[in-house]
C-alpha cells in the first residue's frame, strides 16, 4: 500500500518497508528495552525519560542528518543512551564513578555478556574496586 512512483528526496531515502527489522543493532534493542523495563518497574516515570530524550535530540537537531537508515537509527539510539545515562545519574540511581568504571570494563573486555547467561556467570574475576554497592 505504498504510494506510486519513486520517492523524491532525502527524507524519503530513509523510507523502508514495514517489514524492516524492528531494531537495527542489538545494542539499540537493549538500550530501548532497558529504558522501557525501568519505567515498567517504576524506577522513573516514562515522561521523565521522554523529557531527557527530547533534550538530547534538541541538542543535535542542527547537526547534519545521516542520509541512510542505519546511520540515522544509530544516531537516534545514541541520543537514547545519553538520555538514559543522564536521567539515572541525575536521579541518583547510578553514580558517575561506577558507570564510568563499568563502561570501561565492558569496553576493554574485562566483562562481557556471559554475565547474563545462567551457569556461565563468572563470580571470581570481576573487580569491584573503586565503588561501594
Amino acid at each position: 500500500m505504498t504510494a506510486d512512483g519513486p520517492p523524491a528526496s532525502r527524507l524519503a531515502a530513509l523510507k523502508d518497508d514495514e517489514d524492516a527489522p524492528v531494531f537495527h543493532a542489538p545494542w539499540q534493542a537493549r538500550a530501548f528495552a532497558v529504558a522501557v523495563a525501568l519505567s515498567d518497574e517504576g524506577t522513573y516515570e516514562w515522561t521523565a525519560f521522554q523529557k531527557r530524550l527530547a533534550a538530547e535530540i534538541e541538542q543535535v537537531d542542527e547537526a547534519a542528518v545521516p542520509a541512510d537508515g542505519e546511520a540515522s537509527e544509530a544516531a537516534y539510539y545514541r541520543r537514547w543512551v545519553a538520555a538514559l545515562e543522564r536521567l539515572l545519574l541525575a536521579d541518583g540511581v547510578l553514580e558517575n564513578a561506577e558507570l564510568t568504571e563499568r563502561t570501561r570494563e565492558f569496553a576493554e573486555g574485562e566483562r562481557d555478556a556471559s554475565e547474563w547467561i545462567d551457569g556461565e556467570r563468572d563470580h571470581g574475576d570481576h573487580s569491584h574496586d573503586g565503588y561501594d554497592r
Binding site: A29, A31, L84, L88, L94, R111, W116, R133
Partner: peptide
C-alpha cells in the same frame, strides 16, 4: 570514549546488580 555497545552493557549490568532490572526483563521487552 566508549562505543554505545559497552555503555548499554554497563547500564544493564549495574541495574541488574542493584536489582532494578531482572535479567529477563530486557529480553522480554525486546
Amino acid at each position: 570514549e566508549h562505543d554505545p555497545e559497552a555503555r548499554v552493557r554497563a547500564l544493564q549490568s549495574l541495574l541488574i546488580e542493584k536489582e532494578l532490572l531482572s535479567s529477563d526483563a530486557v529480553d522480554d521487552v525486546i
